[in-house]
Amino acid sequence: MLTGSCLCGRVAYEADAEIDGVIHCHCETCRKAHGAAFSSLAAVPRDRFRWIRGDAVRKSFESSPGKLRHFCSECGSQIAAERAGRPTVMLRLGCLDTPIEAGRQWHIWRSDGATWYDPAAALPELPEGFPPT
């Protein structure tokens, strides 16, 4: 069972599914929607996904024809997305509460990627906080 929620906790979902693969999308729309270099997401079957709270604050934005991005109107977290007629819902993995093993992964829409980020670059990693000045 996968569970996920927004930053303030008002919106949450469950999905009786497993993550088969993780996509890191670098398209301009994802970058702007998330305010980041890319959005990490995974598909789950629509019929195994359900919202469990937050109907009053959950909003949707049609970012392209037929594609709805669901978010919390209180804290702004992007939670999931779906396209009309598709059998899956795309979970925004930053809101996933369940630990997963990513397994297969892909970077997509690199042609739209942020000029300041290279996913192939080996960068220093810090366990917490910002680098010392």
Rank of each mutant, 00 (worst) to 15 (best):
C72K: 03
G85D: 09
A114K: 09
S63R: 01
P124R: 07
A37L: 12
C75D: 11
L123G: 00
R10T: 14
G85N: 06
E14Q: 13
L91N: 06
D118G: 04
K67V: 14
R50V: 10
E62V: 13
G21P: 00
Y13H: 01
R110T: 15
Y13I: 03
W51E: 10
G76T: 09
G76C: 06
A114R: 13
L126T: 07
F130T: 13
C27R: 12
A121V: 11
D118E: 08
D47C: 08
S39Y: 00
R110A: 11
D16R: 11
A15R: 02
R31K: 13
H24L: 10
A122I: 15
R48K: 10
V44L: 11
C25R: 05
D118P: 03
A80M: 11
S40M: 12
R48P: 01
A80P: 00
D20F: 02
K32L: 15
G4A: 06
K32T: 14
D20V: 09
A43P: 02
E101S: 14
D118Q: 04
P127C: 03
F130C: 04
S63Y: 02
P87Y: 03
G35E: 13
R110Q: 15
L96H: 05
A56Y: 08
G85Y: 05
D20R: 11
P127I: 01
G9Q: 12
H24T: 03
A42R: 10
F38S: 09
G94D: 01
D16G: 05
G21D: 12
V89L: 07
T3P: 01
A15C: 03
M1Q: 10
A121G: 06
C30E: 09
L2C: 05
E128C: 00
V57Y: 03
K67T: 10
P132Y: 03
W109T: 00
C6A: 09
V44W: 03
R53Y: 05
C95I: 01
A33L: 14
E28M: 12
W106I: 07
S5N: 12
L2G: 03
A43M: 06
G85P: 04
I79C: 02
C75T: 09
C6L: 07
L93K: 00
R104V: 08
R46D: 14
L96M: 12
R48G: 00
G54Q: 10
R69M: 00
